[in-house]
Simulated scan of single mutants.
Amino acid sequence: NGDVIRAGKKTIKDVAGFNVAGILIASEGNLAVITEITLKLIAKPRLSRSAMGVFPNIESAMNAVYKTMASGITPVAMEFLDNLSIRAVEERFHKGLPIDAGAILITQVDGDLTEQLDFQLNILSDKFKENGCIDFRIAKNDEETQNLWFARRNVSQSITIYGKKKLNEDITVPRSSLPALLSEIGKLSEKYGFKIPCFGHTGDGNVHVNVMVKDPSDKAVLQRGYECIEEIFKIAISLEGTLSGEHGIGLSKAPFMRLAFSQAEMDLFARIKKAFDPNNILNPGKMGLPL
């Protein structure tokens, strides 16, 4: 209705009133028009180092992620590529990646002291090797660091070697459920006959799943691709995960909201929407909310 509000405070702590800022964040334009944002700046650490672990299979890599994060250190990034992703990048760019590896983990640590970095890298090496890592490489300079991250930055465009259409979803599960998630996706690949390369931000349990459709003009095959995606959503939810970690719901995932939320929860979302937007003029129909 055009009322102006300020959500949140500049104070470090604030428990007065409801967390309106939290409701607005990631609401996908359903609740308000944001005209001004105040951000907290965090000082950039003075030093950083990157490393890569090579694993014989995806399960070992996912277990290494879980055990590493449970050890108490917090890498800046913990990214993974499965075998299909590794092979795609190598076929496109010839970077000398280990194409026989089941998966690779690319990680980065930072800090203000060299000793901090060494401490974290030693734990990473130990936890990786405890979980089957067959090669642990630490980048020695900026060039090697860039080469390590090249694969992750270019994997999305590379996997198009497997199909003209990419059904890409960004499901997220608890880190402890990553091995089960990737195992079940492997079974779906066999069931439906699609290559499903996976990569993503395993440090926070976020996996980019890509069902590759060779010929999207074949409507029957494309429909099977969407059925495969729906099964992936169901698996993620059964593992106490979520439909999206980054990309949001929008229109394409709206039909699946009821897989993840009860009727009572959907009704609550609708009432919140109506409280903010009584005339339903902000992104109507998004996120599975009623028109």
Results as ranks from 00 to 15, higher is better:
R258W: 12
E91R: 10
N63D: 02
K165N: 07
I159D: 10
P284K: 07
K44F: 04
A260N: 04
K234P: 08
Q108W: 06
N147D: 06
T74Y: 12
G285R: 02
C133P: 14
G132F: 13
G200W: 01
K140I: 14
G53F: 07
S262W: 05
L291G: 15
M78E: 11
K253V: 02
M257R: 09
L81R: 03
F261I: 01
H94G: 01
E90A: 03
I23W: 00
E143A: 12
F261R: 12
S262L: 07
V65T: 12
D82E: 12
I272E: 10
V173P: 01
K13V: 13
K13S: 15
N63C: 02
Q157S: 12
M78G: 00
M52Y: 09
K13I: 11
F80T: 09
I12K: 14
N83M: 00
N206H: 10
E59I: 14
L289P: 07
M257F: 04
D277A: 06
F194C: 01
K40A: 05
S125C: 14
K164T: 14
K164V: 14
V65L: 00
F128D: 07
P197L: 02
T38M: 06
N57F: 02
N154H: 13
L251P: 09
N168A: 11
E184K: 10
K165V: 03
K191T: 15
D100I: 04
L117D: 07
M266Y: 03
N154L: 00
S156P: 08
P45V: 01
S177D: 03
K191Y: 13
K166T: 00
T107H: 04
G132Y: 12
G163V: 03
P179H: 01
N206M: 02
I235N: 01
P197T: 05
E231N: 08
T114H: 15
S217G: 05
C133K: 06
D112G: 10
E144Y: 04
N63S: 00
V173H: 01
S244Q: 06
R137C: 13
I272D: 10
A26R: 08
V221A: 13
K140L: 15
A254K: 11
R258G: 10
D110W: 11
Q116F: 09
P179Y: 01
T68L: 15
D118E: 15
C133V: 02
G72C: 00
V109C: 05
F199Q: 00
G132D: 06
T11V: 05
L24C: 07
D218A: 02
I106Q: 07
S176M: 04
N63Y: 10
L124T: 11
G2F: 08
D118T: 15
P174I: 00
F150P: 14
L97I: 08
P45K: 04
H201Y: 00
E59N: 06
A180F: 04
L81G: 06
F128W: 15
A26C: 08
A254T: 14
G186K: 11
I138R: 09
Q108N: 14
F119V: 10
N1P: 15
S252A: 13
D100W: 08
N57M: 09
A103F: 03
P56W: 01
S60A: 15
R46V: 13
